[in-house]
Design a binder for these strands. Sequence first.
DNA 1: GATGAATGAGAATTCATTCAT
DNA 2: GATGAATGAATTCTCATTCAT
Lengths: 194, 194, 194, 194
Amino acid sequence: MTRGSQTREQIEAKALQLFVEQGVAETSVRDIAQAVGIADGALYRHFASKDALVGHLFKANYIRFAEELDRLQAAAPDCHAKLAAMVGGFCRFFDADPVLFRFLLFVQHGQLAKIGAEVSTPVDIVRNVLEAAMTRGEITRRDPALATAWVFGIVLQTATAAVYGRLSPKLTPLRDEIVGAAWRALAGTAIDRA
Amino acid sequence: MTRGSQTREQIEAKALQLFVEQGVAETSVRDIAQAVGIADGALYRHFASKDALVGHLFKANYIRFAEELDRLQAAAPDCHAKLAAMVGGFCRFFDADPVLFRFLLFVQHGQLAKIGAEVSTPVDIVRNVLEAAMTRGEITRRDPALATAWVFGIVLQTATAAVYGRLSPKLTPLRDEIVGAAWRALAGTAIDRA
Amino acid sequence: MTRGSQTREQIEAKALQLFVEQGVAETSVRDIAQAVGIADGALYRHFASKDALVGHLFKANYIRFAEELDRLQAAAPDCHAKLAAMVGGFCRFFDADPVLFRFLLFVQHGQLAKIGAEVSTPVDIVRNVLEAAMTRGEITRRDPALATAWVFGIVLQTATAAVYGRLSPKLTPLRDEIVGAAWRALAGTAIDRA
Amino acid sequence: MTRGSQTREQIEAKALQLFVEQGVAETSVRDIAQAVGIADGALYRHFASKDALVGHLFKANYIRFAEELDRLQAAAPDCHAKLAAMVGGFCRFFDADPVLFRFLLFVQHGQLAKIGAEVSTPVDIVRNVLEAAMTRGEITRRDPALATAWVFGIVLQTATAAVYGRLSPKLTPLRDEIVGAAWRALAGTAIDRA
DNA sequence: GATGAATGAGAATTCATTCAT
DNA sequence: GATGAATGAATTCTCATTCAT
């Protein structure tokens, strides 16, 4: 690995951390440069602009995570297994790189809008899984967007609680509980009690 | 109504809108002043600083909403009814003032940290309801933070989908469905698979 | 005394105090208005501008003090008596209204330049006394500007020490000592040692 | 000398000049930047703030001058010689860099308050010399603050007269006269009248 | 590749002053 | 006479970006 690519990686790592800690707008190029230990201008050898850095950080990782989700989902036989695989993917991602997870899932400052409609996002993957399961009758038929929102909500809000220390810092031990909650939410008739 | 208080209300309304549309950091005092149709400096007769404006917008409304939630919850007899009442509160709030809802629940960005621990937030209200229900055996006993996260996740992510047009723009028609999902998620092993 | 002239006097008093405490540039019209307990704009009923207020405060009082000095000087028979009378005038002024004294003698923010050359200032009065005394052979003949500087220096720096608490807060008890110092400084041949 | 340090020196020089000519509060960062021929923001690469610039200009030079005074005083055998050496130091400083002299001795405006009590100022040096001389019986015993005020008053007011063109622009030729005046002022009742 | 001074366009904020009420 | 909202220019400072070295 060359000196240059080492610097680039450090920029990415420190930028990610600062973006998550303080927000993107609140983090200056100088903040990043100082964290890395380089001069302000040096950052522009590696990224055309601050926006380009943010975009790169988001786009590449977001799509990669979507692909990982898709791979996990594809390898599972039925809806419940697919759901469990995907939730497990979320949990492992959170535990492995919480900073990146938070950047992608919470800090996305309008970056989502810049992603073309043709690219699959994690939301698309989950939605596709659920939609197919409805078609196959595996889960209650309802608006796929609604079902997707519930799964995402359960996962992301659990992650949020973990971030704020209201829960254990690791998500993987909670995987089965999360899957259970999501599965139950998806089950049931459209409107039921008891 | 005096000229001054009209201006103040306009500032609040336009600021809220711009904060939600572009983010707080991305909205300049000039943006707000121009939207209202006054000079930059005039804003400072009504709010001591941009921060004070953000804080005012957040604090007053956040607490008021929490109190509303608490009132709704208190008037309901059991956990399911309390949950339904609170979810209904969320839905009505979203439908009545989506801009304010989004500002409070999505844009906050650190304002929460400035609120003293002694003040009850919506999270506290929901959590207290769930914790009490667990004590009374109305719902499965588990980490209250986890249960709270699920309810919040289901509600907020549904709202998010509505914001992005993936769902109908009104939440109230979905209230019973949302309550159902939350209730099932909390239900524990009852509807669990296997 | 009418309501209006009471307000005007309060403005003068509070402005003087603030100018001395914080400096003229550092004191805003609003600071003054708040200290008086009136609205910002009300000040302009009494003074055309902040500059006009500063100018009025300075000019009127400065000239009045110069006239007082002149009166004191004229009533004394010889140089030493005139000096004693004038130093006594400085001391009494300082003790009676230290705020005004400080404003006139220390805070003069370029106000001196705005006073026409035809008006007599305290500096002129002292200088005239010393020049005449040299002519009459009462004190050593030397550059009158130099002699004036010494007398002023001794008086003002003593006042400064009093302001900063390095000396008793009242100057009058020190009058004879100050006169003695000034008189000795003026005496002596142009260059002498003991 | 690098480009950067050249700019920094120019900023210091021009700022000093403007501060003395117009006052600190009346001099904007833009004024300084324009005088130097750089953009406003460029100044902040060299000084963290306008305040920091003022503080740097004051503190470093004030202390340096105090040290010079102390060196001069220490090298002289008795009070009169010490006084002559210190007054000579004042005169040479004034003649060598009248702008800096005026900034330090006349424009300070609250900078003195920011200097810790542990640092020796010119006032302390003079006062210590006079206090020691009183102990040794070289000059009349009186409140050291009073004696210090007189010496300072004579020197500074002479400098003021020079600044305003009422005296020759150079102070050094007047040194012996100034020393004489100060010495006589301190002399006590010896030359006193009657 | 790296440095860091410089730019220029804003950012938030202050403030003397005006004016409708 | 008084109020206080509004103005508009100015102030300090920040920051993404450029560029000579």
